[in-house]
């Protein structure tokens, strides 16, 4: 599983490398473009996802301790928080669309090319992440519905699902400074 996760890390690596190159080439405009993102929604989402990760970790421990009911509760909490994350993300996208920051839409208008490029990168990066969140949510639901998994004291299924969920979290931990913090001022 971890080998697969290493592979996933490299998938996002390409996006981060693109952001790095962009930032090195357009030092000041990068920060200006990032400023248009909603830092507070980004921060809230970081907190939500970190908490969700905690729930997944607790679920693993609960399964190990032979408390299947608690494992299920923790998993559902993780799922709920994951949905909250996606909801906030959706609200953010909707706001971007209203402000004309959504690339490829009719309303799109940008203050200069770097912002255009930055927003594109932002959507590719967070979009790819959102796809992973959705997959992760699916896995969490499967784990939560699976009776056997809850009663498995080795927590094999729940453990692997949680690993995946943590990875999704780690990726976000790096997306956050790359996209949001760069624009704080």
């Amino acid at each position: 599983m971890l080998v697969f996760l290493a592979s996933e890390v490299m998938l996002f690596g390409g996006i981060f490398a693109a952001a790095l190159a962009l930032r090195l080439e357009h030092e000041s405009a990068y920060g200006a473009a990032a400023h248009h993102l909603n830092l507070w929604l980004g921060t809230a989402n970081t907190a939500v996802l970190l908490t969700s990760s905690l729930m997944a970790a607790i679920a693993v421990q609960a399964a190990r301790d032979g408390k299947p009911a608690w494992a299920a509760r923790a998993l559902w909490a993780a799922v709920l928080l994951g949905c909250v994350f996606l909801a906030i993300k959706g609200a953010e996208y909707a706001g971007d669309l209203r402000e004309g920051l959504m690339p490829g839409t009719a309303q799109a208008h940008f203050e200069g090319t770097t912002q255009h490029l930055f927003m594109n990168l932002y959507f590719i990066g967070t979009g790819l992440h959102a796809v992973h969140v959705t997959i992760g949510l699916g896995l969490l639901v499967v784990a939560a519905l699976n009776r056997q998994a809850r009663h498995d004291q080795h927590a094999v299924l729940i453990g692997n699902v949680a690993l995946y969920w943590h990875l999704v979290d780690v990726v976000w931990v790096f997306l956050y400074p790359t996209l949001y913090l760069a624009g704080a001022r």
């Binding site: 990760s53 949680a162 931990v173 790096f174």
Partner: peptide, 15 residues
């Protein structure tokens, strides 16, 4: 700080 957070997640949550 992001690295520190990732390290915490890897070390404790991912066990």
């Amino acid at each position: 700080i992001a690295t520190a957070k990732a390290a915490l997640i890897l070390w404790f949550f991912m066990e």
